[in-house]
């Protein structure tokens, strides 16, 4: 009984759904197709204009007026300029303190050097000459002390070191002068030769006269004389 009922219902469904499938549907009007064509043409035109706009405007990144790249460049340069100005204008107390300390150290070295040159030990005096070379801006007292050492120090080694130290400061006229005057003063052949070498290196023509005076002296060793003669020749 129920089966029959179900079968009847099924038949009804089938017939209804078929009727829905076969339901008469009118033909769409020609206008619908025309409207679609018009819409498609419109869309194609819009797309064409879109494409042209894209070609004309390469990339917003590289746009010179409003692009990201120029903006980034401006921002970066502002940061750099700001940092530079800030660095220049900000007072830096630590920097001033370092400068002060450096000058104090120089001053101390100078004082220590002058004191050590008076020391009885040749080794200490050598150290003092070494210090004298480390002074960046030697004042008159340092150059004077070195000149005195070249002329008067009892130790040849110390004197030789002092010659080198004065040659190191050859840019100072006082140092040059001290070296030239020291030539006739020297008794040690080693120091004489060292001085001759320094004069040659500095191409100091004013040294010719004092060197000739040494050559003329009968006390001078032959080998030293020939070396000095060579120096004179080269200087001239």
């Amino acid at each position: 009984m129920r089966k029959q009922k179900d079968a009847k219902r099924l038949a009804e469904y089938e017939s209804l759904l078929r009727a829905v499938d076969e339901m008469e549907v009118p033909e769409p009007s020609a206008e619908m197709g025309q409207k679609f064509q018009a819409m498609l043409e419109e869309a194609k035109k819009a797309r064409f204009q879109e494409d042209r706009a894209t070609v004309r405007r390469p990339s917003p990144f590289f746009n010179l007026r409003f692009g990201l790249l120029p903006r980034l460049a401006v921002v970066l340069s502002l940061v750099v300029v700001g940092w530079f100005l800030g660095y220049q204008l900000t007072p830096r107390p630590e920097r001033a303190r370092i400068d002060l300390l450096a000058s104090e150290v120089q001053e101390m070295k100078r004082t220590v050097m002058l004191a050590m040159l008076e020391n009885s030990s040749a080794a200490e005096r050598m150290k003092a000459v070494q210090y004298a070379q480390d002074v960046t801006e030697p004042d008159e007292s340092v150059l004077d002390a070195l000149a005195r050492t070249v002329n008067d120090d009892p130790n040849v080694g110390v004197r030789l070191m002092a010659v080198n130290a004065l040659a190191h400061y050859a840019a100072y006229p006082q140092a040059r002068e001290a070296l030239i005057q020291s030539i006739v003063w020297q008794k040690s052949p080693l120091v004489q030769l060292a001085l001759a070498d320094v004069m040659l290196a500095l191409n100091e023509k004013r040294a010719v006269e004092p060197i000739r005076r040494i050559i003329a002296s009968p006390m001078v060793d032959d080998s030293v004389r020939s070396k000095l003669e060579t120096t004179v020749r080269e200087l001239l």
């Binding site: 549907v25 769409p28 206008e31 619908m32």
Partner: peptide, 28 residues
Amino acid sequence: LYERYNRALFGFFFKVTLNSQASEDLVQ
């Protein structure tokens, strides 16, 4: 695609709205 589906879509809309003018507008 329009040629292939405009009638099917129109039929679908017609059976749902039961109105041909509305169906044409909806296909559009």
